[in-house]
Structure formats: structure tokens, C-alpha cells
Amino acid sequence: MANTGKRHRLKDLDERIELVRTLNSMSVKELKTTLLSPVHVSIATGRETSTLEADRAKRRKALKANPPTPIPGNSPLSLEFIEPAEGYREVQYRAYDLLGYLNRLSESAIPKINQPKSAIAATQMRGFQSWLSTAMPMDDWPFVIQEDGRPISFAQALITGTLTENCKRLTLSEFTYELMHASNKAFSKFEQAEIERTAKKPVRKASAGKRAPL
């Protein structure tokens, strides 16, 4: 029987490496000014939005206690958030705090300095491409669906500033289908535009030749 537990741990590691690597590529200023919604944090951490809501309530209670209740660094309650304020209709999370939480959650997400070079190289190679090449039928990955229907990995959407609230976990077959569907839709739209453009293009009349003298 296959060791599915090990496979799931590797898949989770791939996801975390991809996300942490992406966040680490951002400047501190970018991290502190990039705001994420509960939907984004849910897809990034694997915790349901309702669970995140419960986490926030427990964090508020712990911090308001006298004295404040200590919160372990690797606890979901340690993930800081910004309360709703003027201009924001819901709770927001900073990418900076998400990175800090992920770093505390698992040191294995970031190669250690004293690791052998071969181990560091192997870790750095893991991520979305690793998932694409090794995903089993039911293995999924966090994606963000763009306005045109294209699914791109959450980490890629984060670094390119193309996050939407339409976040999904897709299996390899679902990802392939969604991508193909979006591609076909885009091609049909382009083809229709070309037909309409051609139809509107004025037809040049052939110039009449000079009549020969009688």
C-alpha cells in the first residue's frame, strides 16, 4: 500500500516552499503594504475562513486577558490581522505577518544554512513545477481564478498582483480542464472579434478602366 501520509506531507511542503519563496522575494515594504483577505489566507494556510474567524476571536480573547494569555509562535492564533477600519469592509492580513507565521509554523519551509548543499538544492527545486510533474489524480494545489477564467497558482498571483477572491484548490485534471476552457474561450473571443473587424472593413471598389475611343 502506498505511503499516502508521506505523499501528503511532501505536497504540503511543496506548497509551503512555493509560498514562502515567493514572499521572501518581496521587499519588506511590499510585504507590509500587501493586504490579504481571509479568503486569501484560507487558501494559503489550508484553514477554512470560518476557522480563521474562530482563530481571530480566540486571539482577541487571549490578548485582552489580564495578564494576556501567551500565544505559542506556531499557533494559528499567532497570525496577526488588521481589524476592519474605514475603507475596509472586512478583516485584512498583511503578507508580512503571513510570512512570519509560515516561518514559525515550519522551519522546513526554508533551507537551513547548515544543511548540505545537495539538500538545499533539492528543497529549492520543490514547488509548483514539482507538483505538476508528480501530482497524483487527487492531489490538489491552491489556485486563483483570473477574470478570464485562467487558473494561476496562488503564489504567482500574489507576486504579480493578480489576486482575486475566486480561490480554488484544483487537482491536476481540474487545472488542465480550467486552463483549456479559458484558452478556448479566449480564442473564440479573438476569432469573433476578427470576424467583426473584417465585416466592418470597407470594401474597396475596383476603379473603372478608361473606355476605348470609338
Results as ranks from 00 to 15, higher is better:
residue 37 S to A: 09
residue 40 H to K: 04
residue 47 R to A: 08
residue 7 R to L: 12
residue 74 N to E: 12
residue 36 L to V: 05
residue 51 T to R: 15
residue 24 N to K: 12
residue 96 Y to G: 01
residue 96 Y to Q: 11
residue 81 F to L: 02
residue 21 R to D: 13
residue 32 K to W: 07
residue 62 A to N: 12
residue 76 P to K: 02
residue 99 L to V: 02
residue 24 N to I: 03
residue 42 S to N: 05
residue 91 V to H: 06
residue 70 P to I: 03
residue 12 D to I: 11
residue 23 L to W: 01
residue 88 Y to G: 08
residue 66 N to F: 14
residue 41 V to L: 03
residue 22 T to G: 05
residue 69 T to N: 13
residue 98 L to I: 09
residue 42 S to F: 02
residue 72 P to R: 10
residue 52 L to S: 01
residue 8 H to G: 01
residue 53 E to H: 12
residue 83 E to P: 03
residue 94 R to E: 04
residue 4 T to L: 14
residue 63 L to M: 10
residue 94 R to N: 03
residue 16 R to E: 09
residue 94 R to A: 09
residue 67 P to H: 10
residue 58 K to H: 12
residue 79 L to T: 00
residue 98 L to F: 09
residue 14 D to Q: 15
residue 35 L to I: 05
residue 88 Y to Q: 13
residue 78 S to G: 03
residue 100 G to N: 10
residue 81 F to S: 05
residue 91 V to A: 10
residue 5 G to T: 14
residue 36 L to N: 02
residue 36 L to S: 00
residue 72 P to K: 08
residue 5 G to I: 13
residue 95 A to V: 01
residue 43 I to M: 06
residue 59 R to Y: 04
residue 98 L to Q: 03
residue 35 L to N: 10
residue 93 Y to V: 01
residue 74 N to P: 07
residue 41 V to A: 00
residue 93 Y to D: 01
residue 61 K to G: 06
residue 15 E to R: 11
residue 12 D to C: 11
residue 59 R to P: 05
residue 13 L to W: 11
residue 97 D to P: 01
residue 17 I to S: 03
residue 52 L to G: 00
residue 27 S to L: 06
residue 85 A to E: 14
residue 33 T to G: 08
residue 26 M to S: 06
residue 59 R to W: 03
residue 6 K to G: 07
residue 27 S to M: 07
residue 72 P to L: 07
residue 46 G to W: 05
residue 81 F to G: 01
residue 94 R to C: 04
residue 80 E to K: 15
residue 82 I to R: 06
residue 54 A to P: 06
residue 25 S to Y: 03
residue 93 Y to P: 02
residue 6 K to L: 14
residue 27 S to V: 09
residue 58 K to V: 12
residue 73 G to M: 09
residue 63 L to K: 15
residue 65 A to H: 11
residue 83 E to D: 14
residue 25 S to L: 04
residue 59 R to V: 08
residue 29 K to F: 08
residue 25 S to I: 07
residue 65 A to C: 08
residue 59 R to T: 15
residue 21 R to Y: 05
residue 70 P to F: 03
residue 63 L to G: 05
residue 61 K to Y: 11
residue 43 I to K: 06
residue 59 R to H: 05
residue 10 L to A: 12
residue 41 V to C: 00
residue 44 A to L: 06
residue 6 K to M: 14
residue 88 Y to D: 15
residue 89 R to Q: 13
residue 89 R to D: 14
residue 27 S to D: 07
residue 27 S to K: 10
residue 44 A to T: 06
residue 84 P to M: 11
